[in-house]
Nucleic acid binder design. Sequence first.
DNA 1: CTGTTGTCCGACCGAGCGGTCGGTTACTTA
DNA 2: TAAGTAACCGACCGCTCGGTCGGACAACAG
Lengths: 203, 203
Amino acid sequence: MPPIIELEAIRKAQILEAALKTIAANGCANVTMADICRAAGLSKGGLAHYYKSKNELFLAAFEEFFKRIFVRGKITMAQFTDPLDKLLSFSWLYNADDPDALLGYPVLYDFMSIAVHDREYRRIFHDWVQNWLVLLKEAIHEGMRSGRFRGIDAEAAARSVSAIYQGIATRWFLAPELHSTEWALDALKRAVVGLLNSYQDQP
Amino acid sequence: MPPIIELEAIRKAQILEAALKTIAANGCANVTMADICRAAGLSKGGLAHYYKSKNELFLAAFEEFFKRIFVRGKITMAQFTDPLDKLLSFSWLYNADDPDALLGYPVLYDFMSIAVHDREYRRIFHDWVQNWLVLLKEAIHEGMRSGRFRGIDAEAAARSVSAIYQGIATRWFLAPELHSTEWALDALKRAVVGLLNSYQDQP
DNA sequence: CTGTTGTCCGACCGAGCGGTCGGTTACTTA
DNA sequence: TAAGTAACCGACCGCTCGGTCGGACAACAG
């Protein structure tokens, strides 16, 4: 019997945290089980007690990661009342000091490159995107109910807004010499507002 | 002395082609030298004669890839005369039957995930993006000279257009069940036009 | 003909990694 | 106290893969 009843949950959280940190720092391809063991303060056998294989551990780590980022975005979004502000509330994505963003980018790109060739990873990505879309769609619908927006195809617009976020993020993160934070924030606003106007002008 | 004077160029092209195909099919992490040798029709030693290490080969392959895609985009863009059409001329990116696109996405995502942790890879990405920006900027300037556009910050707008392309592409490719080609093309047009209008309305 | 050089082969080596397994400790239960 | 079990350790095994190396072969030079 475990001395602490939630020991398993604690250990697993420890391990996942260590895995994400190590992946973010070195990239999936360069991460070994030994690295994660060291970061988690466990031995090989100790880790194997909780996760049978590297693949199982990585899947769990990525699931944890996506959950964490989504919760973060949801909470931040909820702090705004104006629907447009909600749609623009992800500016923390372009904040180089934000620990979630800092950890997030390396992990996300690693994940995507695996997802290209792995059906299960792609499913996770799909579900994640869908969650974002629901959130954004709600904000758009809210805006239409209140009269703030009109005539917008919420489904399509949500997809677009989400995609624009990711596009700007990619450039901002991978080519920072060419893409300042100021540009990212300004570009996002212009693109999103322009997109919404486009729907309102010609649905 | 070589029997054919350009043998080296021929072999290198053969090898790079094989490498890109193999990477696109399996992903960098799962590609072995033996795989590439097989695809290129060469032995291990034969390949080593032209590329000393895996890293050197991969770098050359990615450089070749970026050059190829850029040339493709440039040529396609040149087929249009209207500046807005030029900015929207990358619709082949969202064509599931286009061989360049089909090969390109897996390679690009693999590349980016490496670039996150590798300075030289990031430099290549940086240069590539910069090439696109020059192209897009030219089209915008052209539009302003001809009166088609007015008051646009060409530098910033080019960055944004390029980023929007990539964002939509990511979703279209990695979550196709949620993002149809029709959506991608429509979203692109709305976002780009909306963005340009934003600059013209409030520079 | 002989030596040289470019091209290519494939057997081999050594490092590194994921996963296993016998063993140990500490706690619980009977 | 004895037995059982969860938690954990780390040495070890087997395999894969990148890189090496001696050699084969052809074309040319002298």
